[in-house]
Design a protein around this nucleic acid. Structure first.
Length: 202
DNA sequence: GTATCGATTAGC
DNA sequence: CTAATCGATACA
């Protein structure tokens, strides 16, 4: 996904952006996943065939876009956390109350907001439009791939399933850990950054 | 039935 | 740090 271009051809206009930050979520084995406790009306698309959009509503005000990645019956999806805006910047800015380019689609709620995605788009087939991933070769612009724990979750925080283009201006920087009582570190290496020298997680 | 929380964000 | 804001989830 990283470096690929997401395109949305809506009635309001065409929007395109390079994927620069994602997170992986799985099913029953992933306590942080919406699919952790099985299929519901909300997460049903995650259990459907791959290549579909799972759009959920959260915090009473935000939508987030996921791309379903595994075969029917096996729940898994990739959360799109940030895009580098490439096309339709004026339209995005309008929806994002005039944010500057690096912030137009930084953060999963802002991605959906900039594209105008809601629960109505839940289940869209990415192989049939109007929302799709360009088949163009991924272009990471020389930025290396880094990984970190997923953001904003409380369970399964030891899994480093957030992947992003390091130093890319459109990537949402993870909040620094709270000061005060330090949590015992579960991982191996001490954690300055999470650069992944082995490439993406399988 | 009621209480709590969340794959977030903007603002102070 | 917190309010915003409501669907999903937890629990009596």
């Amino acid at each position: 996904m990283l470096g690929r271009v997401l395109v949305y051809e809506s009635a309001a206009g065409r929007i395109a952006g390079r994927v620069v930050e994602v997170e992986a979520y799985r099913g029953a084995d992933d306590a942080a996943s919406h699919a952790h406790r099985g299929r519901t009306a909300r997460n049903a698309v995650m259990f459907g065939p791959p290549g579909h959009a799972y759009v959920y509503f959260t915090y009473g005000m935000h939508h987030c876009l996921n791309l379903v990645t595994e075969p029917r019956g096996s729940a898994a999806a990739v959360l799109v956390r940030a895009l580098e805006p490439l096309d339709g910047l004026a339209l995005m800015a309008k929806r994002r109350r005039g944010a500057e380019r690096p912030r137009l689609a930084r953060g999963p709620g802002n991605v959906a907001r900039a594209l105008g995605l809601t629960r109505e788009h839940d289940g869209l087939d990415l192989t049939r439009g109007p929302l799709w991933i360009s088949s163009r070769r991924p272009d990471r612009g020389g930025f290396r791939i880094a990984r970190s724990p997923r953001i904003g979750i409380r369970r399964a925080t030891d899994r480093t399933w957030r992947f992003y283009l390091a130093e890319h201006p459109c990537v949402s920087a993870p909040r620094r850990a709270r000061r005060g009582r330090r949590r015992p570190r579960t991982g191996s290496s001490g954690g300055e950054n999470f650069v992944d020298r082995r490439g993406p997680h399988p």
